[in-house]
């Protein structure tokens, strides 16, 4: 059993975007703020801070989760992927390219969360129907209301081809 006092820092070892990190934080700090302030990964956006908007969605051990509804200390031993981990160097991920091609982002605030949610869907099902896509992103709000182009981008055939290749690979 381990117990820390209020304001006491707790050591956390975690892997984010393939890189190992070790840092000490207060238990009250959310994973979203840990990513942004402790690790400088500001691609993850914080919108409502209580689990409604989906902007802060990241992949934890491959599954989409709200980083505002997780404590930073709960990242211990986990593998996290944020939007910064999608591109290979300067080469964007095909889903990011598709978002660009379909104008699926306006202000961009929801994009990181949309990408994380969509990637997990496409990994299991590279060719979802538009209805399935709408259902899966129903937990991610776009304040520019640009949903149609976001659905277009996720249903893109080039993305489907790439994700099928990933499944086989």
């Amino acid at each position: 059993m381990k117990k820390t006092a209020v304001d006491e820092l707790l050591l956390v070892n975690t892997t984010v975007n393939g890189r190992a990190y070790s840092f000490a934080i207060e238990p009250r700090i959310s994973l979203a703020d840990t990513l942004r302030y402790e690790l400088g990964l500001t691609g993850t956006k914080v919108g409502c801070e209580h689990g409604v908007c989906g902007a802060c969605t990241v992949l934890v051990d491959g599954e989409p989760m709200r980083s505002c509804l997780m404590l930073g200390v709960q990242a211990e031993g986990r593998t996290i992927q944020t939007v910064e981990g999608l591109a290979s160097g300067l080469k964007l991920h095909p889903l990011q390219e598709s978002f660009k091609r379909h104008h699926a982002l306006q202000c961009g605030f929801c994009s990181a969360g949309m990408l994380a949610t969509a990637l997990a869907l496409l990994r299991d099902n590279p060719t979802p129907t538009r209805t399935e896509v709408r259902e899966i992103i129903s937990g991610n709000l776009c304040r520019c209301t640009g949903y149609e182009t976001i659905v277009d981008a996720i249903c893109d055939t080039q993305v489907a081809e790439f994700m099928r290749g990933e499944q086989r690979g």
Partner: peptide, 11 residues
């Protein structure tokens, strides 16, 4: 808002 401070235990 940010979470209020709390102590934290892991049984």
């Amino acid at each position: 808002m940010k979470f209020p401070a709390f102590s934290y235990a892991v049984p």
